[in-house]
Write a protein that binds this DNA or RNA. Structure first.
Lengths: 209, 209, 209, 209
DNA sequence: GATGAATGAGTCTTCATTCAT
DNA sequence: AATGAATGAAGACTCATTCAT
């Protein structure tokens, strides 16, 4: 019988994890400090430590939650029936990624990139995040199978290789937006559509209706 | 050891910068410590500080040198005449990136990703690195113009958008290799080749079955 | 120990600054180390840094506070009405200085001398301390004006020059006590009293024997 | 049979000690670094260490030499026969001190003050320098005896106390000049002469001829 | 005899975490 | 349950000194 409601505790935990994400966004995963997290959260040191066991646990939880949320948001586009063409799927996915850039006080794209870097030198973090990316790539591979079945890809193409190429397009989009800031989901998708539609004498992108 | 040759001093500086790169590779840009650098270099604290002014100066020099070397290596593929097709250019560029993965005791791909993350929370670093990426993207855009002239891209495509899409493919390749490790330049290039022109009505012929 | 009183915090700050003064007394302004300060304070590294921003800030605060305290203690003798004779004023001032030699765990005279030396090679410190000494000398000059009005100084004497001479007597007293340790306010004052007026033809009468 | 002449070696030693004094003048005794000394000397690290055993030995030698030179310069005024009046002796001594302020690339007054501070926290240095000051004070005491014999001081004055007072005047002069910079031997001596001649109806200083 | 590269102990400062109130 | 004062290990950098050439 706790003195406060579970909802209260959950709200506080969320408050702390939001602060973690905001701090990671600003300072990087390795650059984030408890002091920064505490200040952003608006809570006291002791209180923050009531809701996270340690800095690392807090960061892991904050990242996992965010990554799960992102995956959940992207999932519908990969199980659509009928499956849109590759450029259209890429457009939908990058647009969704883009919309996550400024929600909830932090940019998911930036946080994700910080996570990539940190995972490279933190095996435990890599163990946690790599499967998520691999699972996502599997979904892209499944989409490639569908595209192939639809005749939108050469019959001798390896769907896994196509999935990897599309994943690169998405991760590269995140990197390019975060670093250079002058690329949009729409423009990059049109660029990809042009490559996809190469060789056609008609215009790009929306030709396959 | 007084009165040593300039070559000796240059070799020592390189030795230190190599240690910096190895340490950044292992621990990240923000996670790299002088202790790590010193240990990897095999020199003493004081000696390391004879060759770099500070940790930050050492990291900047190590990164700049590496990035310059990478750019120099990739450049020939973007000024080739005749210009190969997009999938072939992507294959050449990613293959070259791949070969940089394990040279000289560090993986340039991993180091680059650490650099991306650090640049996100370090405006000064961003100022230093973003222009390099932008310049590289301009070269890709120039290649796209050539492709368009060769009829390998739709006439109404925007070369800049194509350049951005290709850059994403390359940056995403780096990220995917570094994080997941199970992708190769050859396989991703085949995946991209499958997508390239797949939307064309006059393409390889396996469409619209 | 949360929610402690302001008095508690102020006492801790004083505890730290006292340790700074004791360390400066022992090791000099430039020789003082944080390790020494920390050890003398009886607190931990982190705690000491909670109460001072840096070593330099701590030293400046410790010195300023001490100098202000000293000035406040000496001031009454320079605005006395009626103004005692020069030897008596010198006696009062040096006696007060003397009493500051062993209060609160450090000798103000020693600390002041360390401050002189440090100020010589630290323009910022000089900017801070010189005005205090100059202001004090101005008070001595004002006293000289009074002495002159009282006929205790030749009519053609320059009060500012007399003020400078008296200041030298005081600073020299501090130096001599700190370095040689065998001089007292009383004895030096008697020595000065013997010189005072000794050159007058209408003096104590033992001249021109 | 050394390969170079003794004069050469002595000149080099002087060159090093001059650099030590210049560095001490600029940075203080505790703030002086071997790097500074080496740079000022124009010699190499190894060479400097050929002429001084260690930094401390170099500093001690540099200070001792300077102090000996100063004492030698001041001595004549304290064994003069006939002995001038106290104000005149003070004038001669402070004028001589003043002339040492800018000779040989360093100010003896500043260096001396650095030495005072250092001696306070360096027993070995105190052991070395205090006797010199004490000996000098003994000479002043001897002068006081002469003054007393000449009827220039009260018969009941303690010459040692007068000597101490005069020493304070000299040390204070050094401190005041070094710190505040706006006092001259002439002006302070006139100030002292005014105090010495206090009570006289005639003008100051030169009345006792 | 001269050189200066190399060394490593010592110094300042930060920051994750604990625990008494 | 909340607070924030206290802790100390770890990190960046300096500097006196040595010694191979």
């Amino acid at each position: 019988m706790p003195r406060v409601s579970d909802a209260y505790l959950a709200a506080r935990r969320t408050q702390v994890l939001d602060a973690v994400r905001a701090c990671v966004d600003r300072d990087g995963l390795q650059g984030a400090t408890m002091e920064g997290i505490i200040q952003i959260s608006g809570l006291s040191t002791g209180t923050v430590y009531k809701y996270i066991r340690s800095k690392d646990e807090g960061i892991e939880a904050a990242m996992s939650t965010a990554l799960e949320g992102l995956t959940a948001e992207l999932l519908p586009f990969l199980v659509a029936d009928p499956m849109p063409s590759p450029p259209e799927v890429v457009r939908q996915l990058t647009s969704t990624l883009e919309s996550f850039s400024q929600r909830e006080g932090f940019s998911l794209l930036r946080v994700a990139m910080h996570g990539w870097s940190a995972a490279l030198s933190n095996p435990a973090l890599l163990e946690k995040t790599a499967p998520t990316y691999r699972a996502f790539r599997d979904l892209l591979t499944a989409a490639a199978v569908t595209w192939q079945e639809n005749g939108e890809l050469p019959a001798d193409a390896d769907p896994a290789e196509v999935g990897a190429a599309v994943l690169s397009l998405l991760m590269g989009f995140a990197a390019q937006v975060a670093l250079l800031g002058d690329t949009t989901a729409e423009s990059q998708s049109r660029g990809f559509a042009a490559l996809y539609g190469a060789g056609s004498t008609t215009s790009t992108g929306r030709a396959e209706s």
